[in-house]
Simulated scan of single mutants.
Amino acid sequence: MQIPIYQIDAFTNTLFGGNPAAVMPLERWLPDEVLQAIAAENNLSETAFFVPTHEREDADFHIRWFTPTAEVPLCGHATQAAAWVVFNKYEWPHVKVRFQSKSGLLSVLRRPDDSLELDFPNLAYEPCSTPELIKAAMPEAPDNAFFVPNDTNYMVVLDSENAVGAAAPDLQSLSLLGNQGLIITAKGDQCDFVSRYFAPGVGIDEDPVTGSIHSVLTPYWAQQTGNSSFTARQLSKRGCDLHCELRGDRVAISGHAVFFMEGSVQLP
Rank of each mutant, 00 (worst) to 15 (best):
Pro200Tyr: 13
Leu15Gln: 14
Ser254Trp: 09
Glu262Val: 11
Ser115Phe: 07
Pro127Glu: 11
Ala141Gln: 04
Pro219Ala: 05
Gly188Asp: 10
Thr130Asp: 06
Gln2Ser: 11
Phe147Cys: 09
Leu174Ala: 09
Ala141Lys: 03
Ala167Tyr: 11
Val258Arg: 09
Arg233Ile: 07
Ala124Leu: 04
Leu242His: 04
Val148Tyr: 05
Leu44Gln: 02
Leu235Thr: 02
Trp65Leu: 07
Pro268Arg: 13
Phe230Leu: 09
Val265Gln: 06
Ala186Cys: 10
Glu27Leu: 02
Asn19Thr: 03
Ser236Arg: 02
Tyr154Thr: 07
Gly248Asn: 06
Lys237Met: 03
Asn162Cys: 14
Leu171Ser: 12
Pro208His: 04
Pro25Ala: 03
Glu245Thr: 13
Val202Asn: 08
Glu91Arg: 10
Thr79Gln: 01
Phe11Leu: 01
Ser101Thr: 14
Leu246Asp: 02
Gln224Tyr: 00
Ala39Arg: 02
Met155Val: 07
Met138Glu: 05
Gly165Ser: 15
Ala168Trp: 14
Trp221Met: 04
Pro219Gln: 03
Gly263Ser: 12
Asn150Val: 10
Thr53Leu: 10
Thr67Ser: 11
Asn43Lys: 09
Glu46Lys: 06
Ala81Cys: 07
Met155Leu: 14
Asn13Asp: 15
Arg98Val: 03
Gly76Leu: 01
Gly263Phe: 13
Phe260Gly: 01
Gly201Asp: 12
Gly255Tyr: 01
Ala168Ile: 12
Ala168Cys: 12
Pro139Trp: 13
Tyr154Gly: 04
Leu235Trp: 03
Val216Arg: 04
Glu46Asp: 07
Gln80Glu: 06
Arg238Tyr: 02
Trp84Gln: 00
